[in-house]
């Protein structure tokens, strides 16, 4: 997109657009962004793209190593098969929609709930808000995985319970960020100006404040996303999350442990997949924070 300046007019892009211009400066960050997009596409279209269904057994081809193995490699199973003869590549691709896709959904749900509660609580004051503050401090000091394990212990193991547990765990972080940011913005002059124009608090929130804090919330969302991927996978690995036949990456990993010494690829491939998605998410988050800093320094 070439942005030619024909007119003398100065253009002021919105905060989100400014962030994007700064964001795409760094190639490594764009690489991470591309990887995240790739994972999203994979998560959505995995049933169409995969060569085999995730639970189809090929009983003649148990524990085949990946295709680049000099003796046993077979191109029809690019990344090999596991102990029940299920194609690793298809399982990994299906797993993208569980581990990565679910973490994405988890983050969006907790973002919406967190932002709503956070911005409403920023408007209140007095005993209600101070109670919330102390409560948040306590919840934030408990590590997310521990809290998720406790909630799963209450609800009982299972994938949907895991999802709810992680949603509940992530909400306080969003409340905290939104609350602080909204409070900060409310002290600024432009808010005062629109208040003098007679705008109500909710209107100010919608038109003046949200466009200015959305980037901070997105930054928090990338952090939450990488935490969510790791937590879903960790719970799956501990056997508290997705049940074994599901191609969730953490559950696949723990499924492969028994034959770890004979067929290490059943363990290192899901691990690499988790690593890849977390690194991609962190790269995007890092780029976001960097771009934010650039804009603030200007």
């Amino acid at each position: 997109m070439a942005r030619e300046k024909i007119y003398q007019e100065e253009e002021f892009p919105s905060p989100l657009m400014q962030l994007w211009y700064n964001f795409r400066q760094k190639p490594i960050v764009m690489l991470g962004f591309g990887a995240v997009l790739f994972l999203i596409i994979l998560a959505i279209f995995s049933p169409i793209l995969t060569p085999y269904p995730s639970t189809q057994n090929h009983l003649n081809d148990l524990l085949l190593p990946p295709a680049w193995h000099p003796i046993d490699g077979n191109v029809s199973y690019l990344l090999g098969t596991d102990k029940l003869g299920r194609d690793m590549l298809s399982r990994l691709m299906h797993g993208a929609s569980f581990t990565f896709g679910l973490s994405f959904i988890v983050v969006i749900i907790s973002l919406i709930i967190g932002v709503v509660i956070g911005s409403l609580s920023a408007l209140t004051s007095g005993i209600k808000s101070s109670f919330l503050n102390h409560f948040l401090d306590v919840v934030l000091s408990i590590p997310s995985l521990l809290l998720a394990i406790v909630i799963v212990a209450i609800l009982g193991p299972g994938l949907s319970n895991t999802v709810w547990a992680i949603v509940i765990v992530l909400i306080p972080q969003f409340i905290h960020v939104t609350r602080n940011e909204v409070k900060q913005e409310f002290t600024k002059d432009y808010v005062l100006a629109s208040r003098l124009d007679g705008a109500s608090s909710l209107r100010i929130l919608q038109y003046s404040i949200f466009p200015n804090i959305i980037e901070k919330i997105i930054g928090q969302a990338t952090l939450a996303q990488s935490a969510a991927i790791l937590d879903i996978a960790a719970l799956g690995f501990l056997g508290l999350g997705a049940p074994i036949p599901m191609p969730e990456w953490g559950a696949m990993l723990s499924d492969g442990i028994d034959l770890f010494y004979i067929a290490p690829w059943t363990v290192y491939l899901p691990g690499l997949a988790i690593l890849f998605s977390v690194v991609a998410t962190n790269l995007v988050g890092e780029g976001m924070r960097h771009a934010l800093k650039l804009r603030k320094d200007k």
Partner: peptide, 8 residues
């Protein structure tokens, strides 16, 4: 190092 899942 921060992104590596610990169980893996």
């Amino acid at each position: 190092g921060y992104s590596i899942p610990v169980f893996w």
